[in-house]
């Protein structure tokens, strides 16, 4: 049974997305992408993904909007009016229909017996629950480790998986942020370096470039 608030949030999200698509004022559209992220964070909370909601609210509504606004201040504030073309609608319609056809085989939303909840996820939850709750009772006794089952023993299972079970993954993610920042610096920081060069050299550089 769908909660009314889910329907309301989805309607808000769809409206915001359509308005973003139609707006020609890019500043307003940038603010609306922030609102879009905030609304989706609300939906993530209903779907029990509190960590994802937290991240989406902080990233989408905070930092990403600031970055887009910074870019807009350097480029155009408005986009040109353009005629509505029919081809994109056809492409999008066909893609959407194919995707919806693909969902027909999926388990219903919230189905406890769905395939993704078995295997590894069930194991993670089982191990962590046992480890954390047994830790509670006898703090001195090391939890679970004698039995050969490794456990983290933290209440937040998402953090346990993120930082310990899938530590490699998170290491890669940190490396991605690092690489992307290096890329941004390489793309945008040339001016500052030129400023440091002494005046005659700089003139030379400007004429040669």
């Amino acid at each position: 049974m769908p909660l009314p608030i889910e329907i309301v949030l989805f309607i808000f999200l769809l409206t915001t997305a359509v308005v973003i698509a139609r707006l020609e004022d890019l500043f307003a559209a940038a603010m609306l992408t922030g609102i879009f992220s905030l609304l989706s964070a609300g939906l993530f909370t209903i779907m029990d993904a509190v960590d994802v909601a937290f991240t989406e609210a902080a990233v989408g509504a905070g930092v990403a909007t600031v970055f887009i606004l910074c870019t807009l201040s350097l480029t155009a504030k408005r986009e040109y009016q353009q005629p509505t073309r029919i081809l994109p609608f056809i492409v999008v319609g066909i893609t959407g229909a194919a995707l919806i056809y693909g969902t027909l085989d999926m388990p219903a939303y919230g189905d406890p017996d769905a395939v993704p909840h078995g295997h590894l996820s069930a194991k993670f939850i089982e191990i962590e629950e046992k480890a954390f709750l047994s830790q509670d009772k006898h703090a001195a006794e090391p939890a679970q480790h004698g039995s050969g089952e490794k456990a983290v023993g933290l209440p937040n299972i998402v953090t346990s998986i993120l930082a310990s079970y899938r530590g490699y993954d998170t290491f890669g993610e940190t490396a991605v942020i690092f690489t992307a920042t290096i890329g941004v610096m390489l793309l945008l920081r040339t001016r500052r370096r030129e400023k440091k060069v002494s005046p005659p050299n700089r003139d030379q550089m400007e004429t040669t470039s």
Binding site: M47, D48, A49, D51, V52, P112, P116, H117, L120, S121, F124, I125, E129, I157, V158, I161, L162, R166, D169
Partner: peptide, 9 residues
């Protein structure tokens, strides 16, 4: 009952 944490991660 907990929701599946793996997609969240």
């Amino acid at each position: 009952v907990y929701s599946n944490p793996l997609p969240h991660v």
